[in-house]
C-alpha cells in the first residue's frame, strides 16, 4: 500500500502526529483572547499612553504569536525533518527585516519631518 499512502491527500491516518487535545485548544483559545483584550483595554481606557502603551502592545503581540505557534500550529510536536520550524525561523528573519528596516528607513525620511 506504499503507493497509495504516498498519494493520500487527507492523510490523518498514517503519520501518527498528534494534533492536540480539546484541553490544549481551550487553553490556547482563552490565552489568545486574554492577550487580545489586554492591549485593547489598556489603550481604550487610557490606562497607559506613549511608550508604555507601545511596550504593552508589543509584548502581548509577541506572546500572542507564541501561543498561536504552540497551541494551534503544534510547533513542539513536529517530527523530523522540522520543515515548520525552518519555515518559522525564515519568516522571523523576514519579519525582523520588515519591521527594523521600515523603522530605519522611515526614521531618516527627511520628507516626513
Amino acid at each position: 500500500m506504499a503507493n497509495v499512502n504516498a498519494n493520500h491527500h487527507d492523510s490523518h491516518d498514517h503519520h501518527g502526529e498528534s494534533h492536540g487535545s480539546v484541553k490544549s485548544y481551550v487553553i490556547g483559545f482563552i490565552l489568545s483572547i486574554v492577550l487580545t483584550i489586554i492591549p485593547l483595554v489598556v489603550v481604550l481606557q487610557g490606562w497607559m499612553t506613549g511608550n508604555a502603551a507601545i511596550a504593552v502592545i508589543m509584548i502581548t503581540a509577541v506572546l500572542q504569536f507564541l501561543i498561536q505557534m504552540l497551541f494551534f500550529m503544534h510547533l513542539k510536536e513536529e517530527k523530523k525533518p522540522r520543515y515548520n520550524l525552518l519555515a518559522l525561523l525564515l519568516a522571523l528573519v523576514i519579519v525582523v527585516t520588515v519591521v527594523a528596516g521600515s523603522i530605519w528607513i522611515m526614521m531618516y525620511n527627511t520628507v516626513a519631518h
Binding site: 523576514i94 527585516t97 528596516g101 528607513i105 522611515m106 531618516y108 525620511n109 527627511t110 520628507v111
Partner: peptide
C-alpha cells in the same frame, strides 16, 4: 530579494546610510 527593496526609492530622502 528581501533585503533590497529600498533601491526603488533612493530619491525618497532616507539619508546616505540607508
Amino acid at each position: 530579494s528581501f533585503f533590497t527593496w529600498a533601491h526603488h526609492f533612493f530619491t525618497m530622502g532616507s539619508g546616505a546610510n540607508v
